[in-house]
């Protein structure tokens, strides 16, 4: 069943420097329980796509539907990690996480909220820093706290905008594993994930399907059929992974311009 549907979506970004089309007549379906990664050069509309799904902005034409219903605004069935970590500076790491949980699950008791928050903080390796305020945390720690807040909300749909960009390789691997386990869930029901990244390896590692975007549209789709759970180390040298990466790189090179390809495109 289709969880997320975009139908002929056009979105024009109007800034001070004039109007620029961010998405042109884009259609996309994400199945329930699917993990979709979106790659593409900077400024090709990846973030806009996520903001539309989040309900933070609305298309100029076309429709965005979740569970068959048009998106009318943000909702606690979706949670998002922004590219620039946005913790609330007046709350400690734990309170930031707990706040997210309380909003998504108002029925939980105070003790349950705290327990869940501590569990997730433990998983992202921040339990020792739980009582610190964002200004006392390093950039990477803040990003982990923001990820913890989103994962702790345990929503059906996860939207992530380059969540692991600021993290070192090892922590990144740990969080990728964590994300995958959250995605797979405890029971049989998988979550639906839309994950924007600049890292081709990360996309192949995590996704069921990788979308390659050129400015305004989806230019290529690459299914990744690898068994789960996948691990950073286990999958690193697999022939199938290398093939996928090659294919993705080919997309980036398709326009023939030199120098526009890198795994870490400048933000």
């Amino acid at each position: 069943m289709a969880k997320i549907e975009l139908e002929h979506v056009t979105y024009t970004y109007s800034g001070r420097s004039g109007a620029a089309p961010a998405l042109r007549n884009l259609s996309l379906t994400v199945e329930d329980g699917e993990f979709v990664c979106v790659v593409g050069a900077s400024g090709c509309g990846k973030t806009t796509l996520l903001r539309l799904l989040a309900g933070l902005t609305f298309p100029d034409s076309g429709e965005v539907r979740i569970d068959g219903k048009p998106v009318a605004g943000p909702g606690t069935d979706r949670s998002i990690v922004f590219q620039n970590y946005t913790l609330f500076p007046w709350m400690t790491a734990r309170r930031n996480v707990a706040f997210g949980i309380r909003q998504a699950h108002p029925a939980l008791s105070r003790a349950e909220v705290r327990k869940t928050a501590d569990e997730v903080l433990q998983k992202v390796g921040l339990l020792d820093a739980a009582d610190k305020y964002p200004f006392q945390l390093s950039g990477g720690m803040r990003q982990r706290a923001a990820i913890a807040r989103t994962l702790a909300m345990n929503t059906d749909i996860l939207l992530l905008d380059e969540p692991f960009g600021a993290l070192d390789t090892r922590i990144r691997g740990e969080l990728q594993t964590l994300l995958e386990s959250v995605y797979m869930g405890a029971g049989s029901h998988r979550k639906t994930v839309v994950f924007v990244t600049h890292d081709i390896h990360e996309a192949v590692l995590l996704a069921d399907r990788v979308l390659y975007m050129t400015p305004g549209e989806i230019a290529g789709v690459l299914p990744v059929r690898l068994p789960r759970p996948r691990r950073q180390l286990d999958t690193a040298g697999l022939e199938q992974v290398c093939a996928c990466r090659r294919e993705l790189l080919a997309y980036f090179h398709a326009d023939g311009k030199p120098g526009c390809v890198c795994e870490e495109a400048p933000a």
Partner: peptide, 27 residues
Amino acid sequence: PQILDSARMLCPTGRTMIWNILLPYLF
């Protein structure tokens, strides 16, 4: 805008928005 976006994703009601986000933000 970043704070506002996060808050909008997290706050279903105007009341939590005002009490938990806007007031401490303004403080």
